[in-house]
Design a protein around this nucleic acid. Sequence first.
DNA 1: TCGATAATGGGACTCAGTATCATTTAGTCG
DNA 2: CGACTAAATGATACTGAGTCCCATTATCGA
Lengths: 152, 152
Amino acid sequence: MTRIDTEWVEKATTELHASGRRAGGARAEVITQLSRETCAVTAEQIERTLAGANRRVGRASIYRALEALAHVGLVQRVDLGESGSRWERIGANGHDHHHHLLCSACGQLVPFEDDGLETALHHLAANEDFTVDSHEVTLHGRCASCAAKQAA
Amino acid sequence: MTRIDTEWVEKATTELHASGRRAGGARAEVITQLSRETCAVTAEQIERTLAGANRRVGRASIYRALEALAHVGLVQRVDLGESGSRWERIGANGHDHHHHLLCSACGQLVPFEDDGLETALHHLAANEDFTVDSHEVTLHGRCASCAAKQAA
DNA sequence: TCGATAATGGGACTCAGTATCATTTAGTCG
DNA sequence: CGACTAAATGATACTGAGTCCCATTATCGA
């Protein structure tokens, strides 16, 4: 279990308050849980993890919290070919911006960063007749261990 | 209505046959319909279009056809934040490889190509401890007309 | 032509996500 | 400090994309 990202939790709390929302226990639980995760998780994973820690939160509240956080740009929805979307926190400083490698054999989701890619995306965005707010990149393939198994 | 991409239809038919599958009317309809589309469509759009042309095909058959085509690499599944996946043909020659701009205001889906981006993705793939088969890039933002409306 | 088996379609079913609504709680004002 | 208003919550019913099942039809090799 990763340590809580206190900075992000505080920022999330502040931003939501600033956007005219009231505090609430369910949302606080979702925020804390998201701050512990290092990569994208499903709403169901959040629900189960909280329930397992005796912090059960209604499903509707989880989706409401995710929606609110996405609305103020603190959470990003990630859609892969799977059933069910995933959600991940966006770093308070924007530093942990990353994309994903999805193993088609074992389903493992691996984050990665690449400056060359970001540069290319920025150039591209500047040249399009489109106001780009965000971007999402997913690489599909096989992780090292699955590729090794297949070769055997 | 775009003209049918005969080359792709033939390649799809051949590839599926080569992979040990039998021919079938439903799948042929789905293949023909996909060859007319220039960008990603939902399974429901395919179903409705075919039904409207008196070529009704069972929903299960549409999904089976898409799955078979995706399996031999002739169709690509595209997941955006929306409900429901989209599917699009992959060019016989690989030339019409493209990515998508999604307008968050009107939902319009716009295809684009960019060599700089592809180059960055290839470099990246070569350096990762991961065997990359394909990639997907989505830019989120506002199309020209929606951006203009918002500014007003 | 015949037989094994894949393809098809309709409809039941699953399950992530949404809508509803009664209840609880946060925050504000006197 | 109480009350009051509206937001937050949670249980549950509901929706709809996608899947499963199975009886029927069609393909294609022998």
